[in-house]
């Protein structure tokens, strides 16, 4: 089929060229000096016309999806703030009209790309210069107010290291399902952790990194979305906020004292299993070695406090100290008795 298809195309091409040439010759008027001046003025004032300076070459045949910019907010002409090609890439006169000192085509004024090297055929500019082009408009966004001095800015991460501008509205980093893959380009440890059995629903696409972190900069540590780790966690786990009658101070200090929110093998995203985690701060109940049911004890439950099994298996220390995040129980004694309630030990 291929040779026949080629033959048909050739015939159509010849016929089409004839027809197109005639039509074109009949329609194109002569260009006067006044027209040329008007055209130049138009180029400077009309954004759409300015784009055409670039899109007459970077058209629909381009291997990179340049025109798909018009599917995005950057390409909405009804918004007077929308940029044209030159707003970001510069006037690029040498790229347009040639530079005798450059063999082949000169580079546009500003070429975007990650810090990993060249973008296509041209050398990319430093991240700070690339980012200046983006921030010229996006500095007005309060979510980016703390970009300067933030971790990614100091590490020379370019906006386009994470964002795709020309890809027709499908910017991977702005979609929950695909955002983590972009972050894992650099953050390898977290890529491992989210696949452990106790994890936030990131692999399932229900949460993304930006649900907890603001990669554009924040006041909180580790680019937390809120002002602190705890404030960020409380947006979904508000029941832990308290304050309680009996507080557990490391809970109020920092959730990550005990939890690794990226994922763990131990339940509830705890960094370690009981009793080991608790023993990093608390004196164990006597010289009781962690042990397992069937590992020698006659019965799984002998004496909870002094049972190596009870502090290791089940919920470990939390088998008894169940109010581990804090207890609001004010009772001094158990109801109807003179026996102590012991809620200060987070037992109920």
């Amino acid at each position: 089929m291929k040779p026949i298809r080629q033959l048909i195309m050739m015939c159509a091409f010849i016929g089409g060229l004839c027809g197109v040439s005639v039509a074109f010759a009949a329609d194109v008027p002569a260009v006067t000096p006044a027209d040329a001046l008007k055209k130049e003025a138009d180029l400077k004032s009309n954004p759409l016309t300015k784009d055409q300076v670039c899109t007459r070459c970077h058209d629909e045949s381009e291997t990179k999806p340049i025109l798909s910019l018009y599917q995005t907010k950057h390409g909405v002409r009804a918004d007077s703030r929308a940029p044209n090609c030159q707003s970001c890439h510069g006037e690029s006169d040498k790229h347009l009209h040639g530079d005798p000192s450059v063999k082949g085509r000169a580079s546009p004024d500003l070429v975007f790309g990650s810090r990993r090297g060249t973008s296509g055929d041209f050398e990319t500019k430093e991240a700070v210069l690339q980012n200046e082009a983006c921030l010229a408009c996006h500095k007005k966004d309060a979510k980016r107010s703390h970009w300067e001095g933030s971790t990614h800015q100091r590490e020379n991460v370019a906006c386009v290291s994470c964002h795709v501008i020309h890809n027709g509205g499908h910017d991977k980093v702005r979609e929950k399902l695909t955002q983590p893959d972009v972050c894992f380009t650099c953050h390898k440890e977290q890529r491992n952790l989210i696949n452990k059995p106790s994890h936030h629903p990131i692999p399932e696409g229900k949460m993304a990194c930006s649900d907890c972190h603001n990669p554009h900069g924040s006041v909180g540590p580790k680019l937390m979305k809120r002002d602190s780790v705890n404030d960020t966690c409380y947006t979904c786990h508000m029941e832990k906020r308290g304050p309680f009658v009996h507080n557990h101070e490391p809970v109020d200090d920092d959730c990550t004292n005990c939890h690794n929110p990226h994922g763990t093998t131990a339940e509830s995203m705890l960094k370690m299993r009981a009793p080991f985690l608790c023993n990093t701060c608390h004196t164990p109940h006597g010289a009781v070695a962690p042990s397992l049911a069937g590992q020698g004890a006659a019965a799984p439950y002998v004496s909870p406090l002094n049972s190596g099994v009870a502090i290791t298996q089940g919920r470990g220390c939390v088998n008894c100290h169940s109010a581990v995040h804090g207890s609001n129980n004010p009772g001094l004694t158990l109801p109807g008795t003179t026996l102590p309630n012991n809620s200060q030990f987070l037992l109920r």
Partner: peptide
């Protein structure tokens, strides 16, 4: 005996920020 569950709580934050 009754085991306490998480109590109701609330927080209000007012802030000024910028560059």
């Amino acid at each position: 005996a009754p085991i306490a569950l998480s109590p109701n709580n609330q927080a209000q934050q007012f802030y000024v920020s910028g560059n």
